[in-house]
Amino acid sequence: MEITEKDVAHTTSKLRFDDIKKGKVLSVKWEPKLNYAWDNGPALGRYLAELKNGRIIAKKCDKCHRTMLPPRMFCELCWRPTGRWVYVRDTGIVNTWVVSYVDWKAGRLNIEGGVRPFTPAIIEIDGTSKGMGILHLLDEVDPWKISRGMKVKAVWKPVKERIGAITDIKYFKPVK
């Protein structure tokens, strides 16, 4: 057998996004309105509570001795309960990063209009085990001057605005 043009001709479509937008084809639009209330559990619960205090807390595994972030109740590598809590610093290094011109819906940012690109990064937090990164944003830095290994520090929201969320850290900025 060989797959030919004739075989696949049944599913050729000349539809375009514009046709849908202009209502040329029948389509149904549905906005999901589902609400979720997620329990944080003891590990992330304490993590968030400490973020509200302006501190980052990790948890250690007594077997592999990793200091893990985000903290977790079980070590996924050793498959056993984790041990003690340890405070780590709010500084770290850039493991890898991206200069994003799109938002989470793949919508384009108005870069030409002066909007700064998003610069999310994986940041290895000082005091955790090597390679223990968290996802966060970088700011107060020229997007094109970010580099691997760059030292960064958390910029916290004012105490009154903190709610116990990962966004209590506004972003990370470079430090000498």
Binding site: N40, L44, P70, V98, S100, V102, W104, P120, I134, L135
Partner: peptide, 27 residues
């Protein structure tokens, strides 16, 4: 792309509005 927001951890990652294009670019 927007449908992928909910594959990320709801507490530690979703509040940062990550998208697949970012994380692949990061990789």
């Amino acid at each position: 792309a927007g449908a992928f927001l909910t594959i990320f951890d709801h507490t530690t990652e979703q509040p940062l509005y990550p998208t697949l294009i970012w994380i692949f670019a990061i990789e």
